[in-house]
Amino acid sequence: MQIELWINEKKVRAAIEPDTLLIDFLREQGCSSVKRGCETSNCGLCTVFMDEKPVLSCSVLAARADGHHIVTLEGLKEEAEGFGAYIADQGAEQCGFCNPGFMMNAIAMFRENPDPTDDEIREYLSGNLCRCSGYEGQMRGIKAYLAFCRQKGGQA
């Protein structure tokens, strides 16, 4: 079947199988940042935006994306670099495999709630597993980034 959608603001028309998952479709389209860590919607590695809302691309059929706007980390270069630098400064990206999904969801959180408490951060990101970092470095990075944003006077 044919679908038409926007991937990172670019219009894409493609033929897919009815059972193609969004994650596989996006990777085929060159969005390699989208990672898979499970088959049971547990890890959050595959998080992308569909019409600005974070979704698990492993649990969405590509057909469902027809007519929608999909954004992956490839399409958020500036935000990724801006926030990512704070994660890098903690060394919290260890193997880095969980990072794209984590970055996507963190960016979604900043947009939704620019001034989250620690508990809100943990809650919002609880679906993003990381086996390497123990999460504390990610927390430090997020807080340092939020402090920077506040200082800048603007929004996250």
């Binding site: 940042s33 990672k35 980390l73 990512g84 630098a85 060394g91 990206e93 880095g96 495999f97």
Partner: peptide
């Protein structure tokens, strides 16, 4: 020293550096 990893920015920006990429 708290030095950044050399590959840090590639990893946080989701660059295609892993096996299946």
């Amino acid at each position: 020293q708290p030095i950044r990893k050399k590959d840090a920015m590639a990893l946080v920006c989701g660059k295609p550096v892993y096996l299946d990429d």
